[in-house]
Simulated scan of single mutants.
Amino acid sequence: MIYQRPGSEGFYVSHPSSLGPAVEAAGGRKQCFVPDAVSDPGSPSSVIYADYHNHPSSTRFSPEDLQARRQRFYFRVMLNPLCEMYLYDFQARTVFQLKDGKFAVIKRVTDDIRGE
C-alpha cells in the first residue's frame, strides 16, 4: 500500500500485495490479495491512496487489474521484471508508464475493460 500518515506531507509504502493461488486463466496466472488496512503502529489512521504489486512474468496490467470491482483505492501501481513501473488512475480511467522520470499516458480504460 502507498499511504500517508495524518499530518505528514510524505508518503509511505508497505509491503506489496501478496500473491495468491493461480487463477483459472491461460498460463496459470496468479492473483494478488490487497490488504484492507495498513499495519503501521505509528499511525493507526493512515489514508491509503494506492495498492501496488509485482508482476513476476507479465509486463502490463492484467485485465483483472483494471476491473472496477477490484479497485478500492485511487491508484494501482505495478512493477514488472523489466524494472518498468505502471500506474492505473482509477478515477481518470487511464494507465501511465514511468518514462524518463515522468508518467506518460499509454492507455485509456473503457467501461468494457473495467467490467461495467
Rank of each mutant, 00 (worst) to 15 (best):
V105R: 13
A25M: 13
S39F: 02
V77Q: 01
F90Y: 08
S58A: 15
F61A: 04
P35R: 11
P63Y: 04
R108P: 02
G7A: 04
F103A: 09
R70H: 12
R5M: 10
N54A: 08
G42K: 12
G20I: 11
S43W: 01
M85Y: 06
S39E: 09
D112Q: 15
L79H: 13
F33C: 11
P6W: 06
P35D: 00
S14C: 13
H15I: 05
Q97T: 09
A50L: 02
P56I: 14
K107E: 11
L82V: 06
A50F: 12
P44A: 10
G115Y: 05
K107I: 00
D51I: 00
N54T: 12
F96M: 01
Q91Y: 07
L79A: 15
R60W: 05
K30E: 09
S58Q: 07
F61T: 00
V109Y: 01
Q67G: 07
V13H: 04
R72M: 10
R29V: 09
Y86S: 12
V47H: 15
L98S: 04
L79N: 15
R72F: 07
Y86D: 07
K107T: 05
G101S: 01
H15W: 10
G28D: 04
I48N: 09
Q71E: 08
Y49I: 00
L19G: 15
P44R: 14
P56N: 10
R29N: 15
A104S: 04
Q97S: 03
S58G: 14
P63N: 12
Q67H: 05
L66V: 10
P21R: 15
E84H: 13
S62L: 03
